[in-house]
Write a protein that binds this DNA or RNA. Structure first.
Length: 432
RNA sequence: GGGGGUUUGCCCGAGUGGUUAAAGGGGGCGGACUGUAAAUCCGCUGGCUAUGCCUACACAGGUUCGAAUCCUGUAGCCCCCA
């Protein structure tokens, strides 16, 4: 698997995908990769218990190397996370507690298993820099590492310069961040013969700092690769919605919401996403590009993207439930969808409990139900919505202002699906 | 300290005694169209126990059959003089 052919095709592939933003020495890297299996590392910031889209792209990078026969190291920054990387950030961020950090590291580590193979010949490794930083004394660190850092060079780094010029400034702690990450690289070079560090383009300064340090401390030539940031055609970061970031954790972003995010990627962005985030081959890529151009309404590329990523992150079952939810949430008949399927599909839709007794006798007045479900914020609003034809019960339009919901509307299930407009849903869970 | 102006619904902005819950625009919400898009078009946009009732045009009070519209006071903003 680790033939020079595979390696060449790896670099080729990365270049074709547009994933080579900057490299310290492209020929040197190609040569190194040709000489046999190499170890490559990428650092992950444990700022939350889950990764988001940016981290996914980095994990894919490691995965590409692993598939080409190299040894990936995913480094979680248990130590650096205590400091906070100033790169690309406009303000100092709050320090995380050690306790929270540990939770974050655990959460992030679990997600990595979807992307990397931690078994077998070139198994991926998961390391935590807290392990080698925790007992490193300040004095020792300054003597070993600090003295190799000319302040002038540090001041020249983009991450430092931009912050110094801004209002927010930069604390000494953040200023020191670079030393820690540089040392990580050197330490991995020493202990794992890891000679390549990759990362997002905002990591360039930190990576080159590590390369300099490697030369000074080890006399070893290290290499760096950065990938472009995944942005939309209008220049914003991918992975953000009105309601926040898109997470890999199904508790934070349901498989349905995750799937939907990718389905909704703009035509102008979808091919780049496919290139950066998936492993589709060139032939299929060209075919999808063609379909996007000639028959954009089908959104074949978006569907492929959503399906590919959802399957990777949430598994085959995740894809199925997302697709089933899509069908129902976009106006499909409930038909014989079962109770438990409904509850799963509407899992991330606001819901409220209603006692079964409310449906008995006269039943529950639709105007009240809409308010209880928070779909309308007043009786007038509800009446209006009804008369506008914007209210649906179980995906069937209701226009009668006097409509009362009764046991008959349950149709044997234990939930009522209320909808306002095209896709604002709420669930009434009927309690015995 | 003296004089003048201004204050309208989520926002902008008409309205200077009588069908004014308040023109117009924006936003928002529905609907049609569509690709779960963009653009476009149409409707709605104070509350309620709702063919009616109540509360609203900075706030408090007054004149009047009747006020967002007139008067007095209070507060905010703006301008001029000192």
């Amino acid at each position: 698997m680790t033939t020079s052919n595979a390696t060449n095709s790896l670099i080729e592939d990365l270049r074709w995908r547009g994933l080579l933003n900057q490299t310290t020495d492209e020929n040197g890297i190609a040569e190194l990769l040709n000489s046999g299996p190499q170890t490559i590392y990428i650092g992950f910031d444990p700022t939350a218990t889950s990764l988001h889209v940016g981290g996914m792209m980095q994990l894919m990078m490691l995965r590409r190397f692993q598939r080409a026969g190299h040894n990936p190291i995913a480094l979680v920054g248990g130590a650096t996370g205590m400091i906070g990387d100033p790169s690309g950030k406009s303000e100092e961020r709050n320090l995380l507690s050690a306790d929270q950090l540990q939770k974050n590291v655990d959460g992030v580590a679990a997600q990595m298993r979807h992307f990397l193979d931690f078994e077998g010949e070139n198994a991926a490794k998961l390391l935590n820099n807290f392990d080698w930083m925790k007992d490193y004394s300040y004095l020792e660190f300054l003597r070993d590492v600090g003295k190799n850092f000319p302040v002038g060079a540090m001041m020249g780094k983009e991450s430092v310069r931009s912050r110094l010029e801004s209002e927010a400034g930069l604390s000494y702690t953040e200023f020191s961040y670079m030393l820690l990450q540089a040392y990580d690289f050197v330490n991995l070079a020493k202990t794992h013969d890891c000679r390549i560090q990759a990362g997002g383009s905002d990591q360039w300064g930190n990576i080159t700092a590590g390369i300099d340090l490697g030369r000074r401390m080890l006399g070893k030539q290290l290499f760096g690769i950065t990938a472009p940031l995944l942005t939309t055609s209008d220049g914003r970061k991918m992975g953000k919605t009105e309601s926040g970031a898109v997470w890999l954790d199904p508790e934070r972003t349901s498989p349905y919401a995750f799937y939907q995010y990718w389905i909704n990627v703009a035509d102008e962005d979808v091919m780049r996403c496919l290139a950066y985030l998936t492993e589709i081959e060139r032939a299929e890529y060209d075919e999808l590009e063609d379909k996007t151009k000639n028959d954009p309404g089908q959104r074949t590329a978006q569907k492929r993207l959503a399906q590919w990523l959802t399957e990777l992150v949430h598994g085959e079952a995740g894809v199925q439930s997302a697709q089933r939810a899509t069908q129902i949430l976009f106006g499909g008949e409930l038909g014989d969808t079962t109770d438990s399927q409904l509850r799963e599909i509407f899992a991330d839709v606001p819901s409220c409990d209603v006692p079964k007794s409310a449906l008995e006798g006269e039943g529950l007045w639709i105007v009240e139900a809409l308010q209880t479900a928070k779909l309308c914020n007043s009786g007038g609003d509800a009446r209006r919505a009804l008369s506008e034809g914007g209210v649906y019960v179980n995906n069937t339009r209701v226009e009668d202002v006097q409509k009362r919901l009764t046991v008959d509307d349950l149709d044997g299930r234990s939930v009522l699906v209320l909808r306002r407009g095209k896709r604002k849903y709420a669930l009434l869970k009927i309690q015995d």
